[in-house]
């Protein structure tokens, strides 16, 4: 099992949710996982219903398996100051740089620099050891940028080579790439059973592979329950409305006669079944496309009541059950 688990996917498909569930799932008894956020949106804090996370690793949950989950929201400005401090011993001048907006300037004109800092911090957490020699974190799970940017984000090395050809930042970038391109890392993609996210997943995988970044698994999120299968839908189409009316009536939903309550339910219920059938067919196609990617697939259910902490734990249990941890 790779120690750095990167979770990407199309925007809004559930990257943050799945990353958090995975961090919970990986925290077995006696283990410690770190969940990192790189986009400065405080999505993790929102999900765990805690106040905004500072730039500091802190414990946010005890996992169903008994282990601990820590979280960190990486702030690129502070990460850059850390680095400057480390390499140039800037002291108070570092703060002056920040005050003048120079840090902002640097990360703006060189977006690659920002990514070096973010991935650098995550890799540092992966490699960090305690005095005892044990890894500080058994797993680091990253809530990463979306599919469209993930390859470039992880592959900053190339960018940085153009920006900082020598010096500590350059060396740092190389060290980061060694972790990211090794089996120590796995990049997972979250998708929905819809055409666009699936297409983006396929494209994203091709890009990651071309860049020699290790692709992990595909997680299909928000999967709706199969209420009727293809054969049953066929039967529904072949059944007389009167039969449905009578059956609804028998179930206590009013009269089956024309204009009766049960009878008036038939049309709308059949219309809903048609919509379901259409979606069912689309989902079927998308499952087939995903099947051809040659990667392990996992499915997480759509939580009908919306997300909350209990739902998150439920998803974590689901991932454990499916052997993702």
């Amino acid at each position: 099992m790779s120690r750095l688990q990167v979770v990407s996917g199309k925007g809004g498909t559930g990257k943050t949710t799945v990353a958090a569930a995975l961090a919970l799932a990986l925290a077995d008894e006696g283990k410690r996982t770190l969940l990192v956020e790189v986009e400065g949106r405080q999505g993790i804090a929102q999900l765990f219903e805690t106040e905004a996370l500072p730039y500091e690793e802190r414990k946010i949950a005890v996992a169903p398996g008994g282990g601990e989950v820590y979280a960190l929201a990486i702030d690129p400005e502070l990460a850059l100051l850390d680095y400057l401090q480390m390499f140039y011993k800037l002291g108070g001048a570092g703060r002056a740089l920040k005050k003048l907006g120079a840090i902002d300037f640097a990360t703006t004109i060189a977006p690659g620099l920002r990514d070096v800092l973010l991935t650098g911090k995550a890799c540092e957490a992966v490699r960090r050891k305690e005095k005892s020699g044990r890894f500080a974190y058994d797993y680091v799970v990253m809530d990463a940028p979306p599919t469209g940017r993930i390859t470039r984000f992880l592959n900053v090395n190339d960018e940085v080579a153009g920006l900082a050809k020598i010096g500590p930042i350059h060396n740092q970038a190389q060290a980061v790439m060694r972790v990211l391109k090794s089996p120590e890392t796995a990049v997972h993609l979250v998708t929905l059973l819809e055409e666009m996210p699936v297409q983006e997943t396929a494209d994203g995988i091709a890009e990651l592979r071309a860049a020699k970044l290790p692709v992990g698994r595909v997680i299909v999120n928000m999967v709706r329950p199969e209420v009727l299968d293809a054969a049953e839908l066929e039967l529904v189409r072949g059944t007389a409305r009167s039969s449905f009316a009578q059956t609804l009536s028998a179930a206590g939903l009013g009269g089956a006669r024309r204009g009766g309550h049960a009878e008036r339910l038939v049309d709308p219920l059949l219309a809903q079944a048609e919509e379901y059938a259409e979606r069912y067919a689309l989902e079927h196609e998308q499952r087939a496309v995903l099947g051809e990617l040659g990667l392990p697939l996992h499915e997480l259910p759509l939580l009908a009541e919306g997300m909350d902490l209990a739902g998150l734990y439920q998803l974590a249990k689901e991932l454990r059950k499916q052997g993702m941890s």
């Binding site: 529904v236 072949g238 059944t239 007389a240 009167s242």
Partner: peptide, 30 residues
Amino acid sequence: VRNSPDTDGSSGSPTSDPTVPQLTAGLLRL
């Protein structure tokens, strides 16, 4: 809705078909 009235004839007595309650239950769950 694609169900046509003449399915009546072909499927025989609809209520004797044990799958109708199941299908109806499915519609209700949807």
